[in-house]
Amino acid sequence: MQDCLFCKIVKREIPADIVYEDEQVLAFNDINPQAPTHVLVIPKQHIATLNDIEEQDQGLVGRLPLIAARLAGERGHADAGYRVVMNCNDQGGQTVYHIHMHLMAGRRFTWPAG
């Protein structure tokens, strides 16, 4: 956890373009956006992967899509649509081991993903 990039952002040790914050959740613009809107929504509590979520974390983790949907709506993407993604471990595409939800919008997405 001491070397966790997102924990350092939560602690303000590393700057980020923060777009939302409450007691449990932080959201900031991705530094390598894959869409016109690309926001990362993270819990302030360190949870490394989806596999590490425990029963007592369900309320916290449940806030992530709630906040992502709110941010999508505030940016005018709710009706046109948007994508939310959570990656788990290496083959799932996870590069920062602190769970996070990608909110991407502002362009058409294709399927299957990457």
Rank of each mutant, 00 (worst) to 15 (best):
E23Y: 02
Q24Y: 06
Q24N: 15
L26Y: 04
A27V: 10
A27D: 07
A27S: 15
A27L: 10
A27N: 08
N29I: 09
D30V: 03
D30K: 01
I31W: 00
N32D: 06
P33V: 11
P33C: 07
A35I: 08
P36D: 10
P36V: 12
P36L: 07
T37D: 07
H38S: 05
V39T: 14
V39N: 02
L40Y: 05
V41S: 00
Q45M: 13
Q45N: 09
H46S: 04
I47V: 14
A48N: 06
A48M: 13
T49K: 12
N51T: 12
N51V: 11
N51A: 14
N51C: 11
D52H: 14
I53P: 00
I53S: 00
E54T: 14
E54N: 09
E55T: 11
E55I: 12
E55H: 06
D57N: 12
Q58G: 07
Q58A: 09
G59N: 13
G59I: 08
L60R: 04
L60H: 01
G62W: 06
R63D: 05
R63K: 15
L64R: 01
P65M: 03
P65Y: 03
P65Q: 04
L66I: 12
L66N: 02
L66M: 09
I67R: 00
I67E: 00
I67G: 00
I67L: 01
A68V: 03
A69H: 12
R70M: 13
R70G: 03
L71T: 04
A72F: 08
A72S: 06
G73F: 07
G73A: 10
R75M: 10
R75W: 01
G76T: 01
H77Y: 14
A78L: 15
A78E: 14
A78H: 09
D79C: 03
A80W: 12
A80Y: 15
A80H: 14
G81I: 12
G81D: 11
R83V: 11
V84I: 15
V84H: 04
V85R: 06
V85H: 04
V85Q: 05
M86F: 11
M86R: 08
M86Q: 14
N87R: 07
C88T: 15
C88F: 08
N89G: 06
N89F: 11
N89V: 15
